[in-house]
Amino acid sequence: MKNIKSHFTFTKQQRSGIFLLVVLILVLQVIYFTVDFSSEKYDDNTEIVAQFRAEVDSLNLVKLEETKPKIYPFNPNFITDYKGYTLGMSNEEIDRLHTFRNANKWVNSAKEFQKITKISDTLLAKISPYFKFPDWVTNPKSKIKYQNSYTYDSKPKDYEQKIDLNTASAAQLKRVNGIGEKLSERIVKYRDRSGGFIADVQLQEVYGLSPEVIERVLNEFTVKSAKPISKLNINTATIDELVTIKYIDYEIAHHIIEQRTLREGFKSFDELTKVKGFPVKKSEIIKLYLTFD
């Protein structure tokens, strides 16, 4: 017990030292809980960190934009279900466009496209800069008026009896049942603008001609003096060359080049029609301008 008691016996100098240590601890505790240790240097670091985070967020946004599907110029009349979905159109908006086109009607402006599909102003502003209409829509020529005199017989004629479609006048065309003044002018305009018909199937390209009317026209007319054309080799053509063909836009041309590389060249037109987005309904028109040599 005596040894234990000796441990708690302090001199006057030791007691003063212990008292001073206790006071110092209390002072430090008070300072710790009452004094704000933040500094301007810390604030500066916070601003730098905020700037760094903003820069990282900006880079993430750029990366996100790069991963989004690219939009190439296209004719809105030939929007498929998949194409409409990637553009942000709803099923109802896509169906309205298809219903309009199934009636053999054409959209000729961004405003008309919105009127038919009822898409929002925001979506129209986003996709309309990529609309690509034919030159005859964007740069219409003056119309020439003709008078109708009579109607051709519906009975088909042989090749020799038919009139050359490349020399027929609007007045002659207007005599076919179902061909009025506007349609006859439109056929002549299309012919003159394209430098003449290459084949009878090109009548399908004339806006407003129904299959029944085309059949009646071909009972009386046919292409006899087709202009010579330079066909593109599908296995060597570039993207810029492919988009010169009607109904092939930059997106489809891009898919054609991809598939051509994977297949090591196309062997037949049937293989080409399997390319993603290829306008199969217009294959007979497209075929006129291609070769597989």
Rank of each mutant, 00 (worst) to 15 (best):
L262H: 07
I119E: 00
I31D: 04
S128F: 06
N45R: 11
K162F: 01
E55A: 11
P228G: 02
E160C: 06
K174Y: 15
E212F: 09
Y72H: 08
D164F: 05
H7T: 13
R260T: 08
T167R: 06
T291H: 03
P76E: 07
R191T: 01
Q204V: 09
T11Q: 06
I248D: 02
K70I: 12
P140D: 04
D36K: 07
N77M: 02
E160M: 13
L87I: 05
Q202I: 01
D164W: 10
K83G: 11
F74T: 04
S38G: 07
G88C: 09
E215Y: 06
H98Y: 15
S109W: 10
K182Q: 12
L288P: 04
S149G: 08
K227I: 07
G180K: 08
A199V: 04
P73D: 05
F131C: 03
I4H: 12
K115W: 02
F78I: 11
Y82H: 13
F78G: 02
D95I: 14
I248C: 06
A50R: 13
P73H: 12
K231G: 01
E55C: 04
F278T: 14
D43R: 08
K68Q: 14
K227A: 02
P76V: 13
H254L: 09
S283Q: 13
D135L: 09
P140M: 06
V22P: 03
G196E: 04
